[in-house]
């Protein structure tokens, strides 16, 4: 189990934003992405997850092991907490176990409609998806938005004690300290030059 990124370049709206990004993570390792707004953290994570094509370079991790999560976490308001999670488990060919609910302190809310949850509870439900789908390589885009301190703690515990401890890998873009022992990668040096080659409209210049 590993995630190897070699000389990756990615584009937003057809324009290069990042070039030459390389890193390698082994099982049980995490990486925190840093950098000012607009530097390309979301673009990088989406490219890693395969949602958009890379301009150049390679992303290598075992097939069917990647999962992506952002603030839009696919929670359906008219489904109950259990129904939401059971759906994502079923799509990934797994069963919903109670441990995932417990890890995000959702046991007491299990039959509530997601629409009646508070913003923070909804986010916990969205993150609990990561615990039920059983994917080993997580690409997380600002996972702690609108979580209170206790919930951030729950999430950090899940990442450290369950995900990473069982040989998972995570790449996380975040502004707050999750308390993980993980290296940080500042993306600012990889920012593409304004006239960098490889934009989709390059032929017109």
């Amino acid at each position: 189990m590993h995630l190897a990124v070699t000389d990756l370049a990615c584009a937003r709206g057809g324009l290069p934003v990042l070039t030459g990004v390389s890193f390698r993570l082994e099982a049980g390792q995490a990486l925190i992405l840093r950098g000012p707004n607009g530097v390309g953290k979301t673009t990088l994570l989406r490219t890693l997850a395969g949602l958009q094509p890379a301009m150049a370079g390679e992303v290598d991790f075992p097939a069917d092991e990647g999962a992506y999560a952002s603030h839009a976490d696919g929670v359906k308001l008219t489904l109950s907490v259990t129904e939401n999670l059971a759906f994502w488990a079923a799509v990934h060919g797994r069963q919903l176990d109670d441990a995932a609910l417990a890890a995000f302190d959702l046991t007491g809310l299990r039959d509530r409609m997601a629409g009646t949850l508070s913003a923070g509870q909804k986010r916990r439900l969205g993150l609990a998806r990561l615990a039920v789908i059983g994917r080993k390589v997580l690409f997380l885009d600002e996972p702690t938005v609108s979580l209170d301190r206790a919930a951030v703690g729950l999430f950090a515990d899940f990442l450290r004690d369950q995900h990473l401890a069982q040989g998972g890998i995570a790449v996380i873009a975040t502004h707050i300290d999750l308390g993980l022992e993980a290296p940080e990668l500042d993306l600012t040096p990889y920012r593409a030059a304004p006239d960098a080659a490889g934009g989709s409209d390059e032929a017109f210049l």
Binding site: L15, P194, D195, G199, E202, F204, L205
Partner: peptide, 17 residues
């Protein structure tokens, strides 16, 4: 159309510069 694309390509690079 090519001129328009060229204009928008140049503009996009000027904005990000």
């Amino acid at each position: 159309e090519i001129r328009l694309r060229r204009a928008s390509a140049l503009e996009a690079r000027m904005r990000s510069a």
